[in-house]
């Protein structure tokens, strides 16, 4: 599919999803979309819409887009279709670090920075364990180990909190957009386009890296420095999301893959298509999390993992099949 029809189609799908989710009444009945514009909404509903649902949707969409762009970039950097910010440890490190920062009473604006540091530290550990620059499956294995370590430490940390409630644990481990407010949404609406643009600008390098590090070098790219830049940007995007929304797994894996099936591997198209798909997936997952067992709410990561884990297995099966046929 060409990029322009894809963007038009995706925009329509996103608008439809957002519109439906926006107008979902508290008892789960969808309100007709037109009521939104007719001015007939009761004040409480209007308040709900503008102060809760809209910032929540903006947060979900931009967070999903950032995770997808980071996933696409990481997959190209390590020439590994199974890589994603969560699987190679960035998310785990970022979550632990953010929780630590919160516990130490760091002011809120510093939490994303702490998450960023934690994400990078985890990534450094993963690379160290899998030898730097390797393309293969070792990176994933090392990432799983690092994630397990950070996940356990996070659970210990939360369990030792004086009011360590189950809610906080699930927020960090399974992710949620339920705490969204306007200041958060504004931060994302400003930061996301900048990060997405910076990642998009690397499309030539991302294309070259998909041929392998040696070929990228032969084409004239400084692989070490360029690769580090891409990973830093991906870590920054992931850390931003994790520090505000917890670990929303698998969006960074699923969205770039679906995008690749639809618009091909060219990074100039992929880094536009994947964020659109990622944003939509997060929006959809959040809506399902919000409405499936209404009035209770599921953590959004439960939905993304429920869809993402089988997707991951399917990818593994596909790559095995390809290897057998090669």
């Amino acid at each position: 599919m060409r990029l322009l029809p894809f963007v038009v189609l995706m925009s329509a799908v996103i608008a439809l999803t957002a519109g439906t989710a926006l107008t979902l009444t508290p008892d789960g009945r969808p309100e007709p979309l037109l009521a939104l514009f007719s001015g007939n909404l009761p004040p409480i509903e209007r308040e709900l819409l503008w102060q809760l649902r809209l910032p929540r949707q903006l947060l979900a969409f931009t967070a999903g887009a950032l995770l997808a762009a980071a996933g696409g970039a990481i997959q190209a950097r390590f020439k590994n279709p199974l890589a994603e910010p969560g699987l190679i440890g960035i998310s785990g490190g970022a979550a632990l670090s953010a929780a630590l920062a919160l516990q130490c009473g760091l002011p809120t604006p510093w939490v994303p920075l702490a998450a960023f540091g934690g994400g990078l530290a985890a990534l450094g550990l993963t690379s160290l364990m899998s030898r730097p620059g390797t393309d293969g499956d070792r990176l994933i294995l090392a990432g799983i180990a690092v994630n397990a370590i950070f996940g356990s430490l996070l659970t210990i940390l939360i369990a030792t909190l004086p009011d360590g409630s189950l809610r906080t644990i699930t927020f960090w481990l399974m992710g949620s957009f339920a705490n969204a407010d306007w200041p958060q949404a504004e931060r994302f609406v400003i930061a996301a386009p900048i990060l997405l643009w910076l990642l998009f600008r690397e499309w030539r390098l991302l294309n070259a890296l998909q041929l392998g590090a040696a070929t990228a070098f032969h084409l004239g790219f400084d692989v070490r420095r360029g690769g580090a830049r891409v990973v830093l940007l991906a870590a920054l995007a992931t850390a931003l999301v994790v520090s505000h929304c917890g670990m929303v797994g698998f969006v960074g894996l699923m969205a770039p893959h679906l995008a690749r099936q639809l618009v091909g591997s060219h990074a100039r198209r992929l880094q536009i298509a994947a964020p659109l798909l990622g944003g939509w997936l997060a929006l959809l997952a959040d809506w399902l999390a919000h409405s499936l067992i209404y009035p209770a709410e599921l953590p959004v990561g439960v939905i993304t993992s429920l869809a993402g884990a089988p997707f991951f297995l399917w990818l593994l099966w596909q790559s095995n099949r390809r290897r057998r046929h090669a």
Partner: peptide, 9 residues
């Protein structure tokens, strides 16, 4: 064995 990736023409 130059590297390549499906999804490019």
């Amino acid at each position: 064995e130059p590297g390549w990736q499906p999804g490019f023409n």
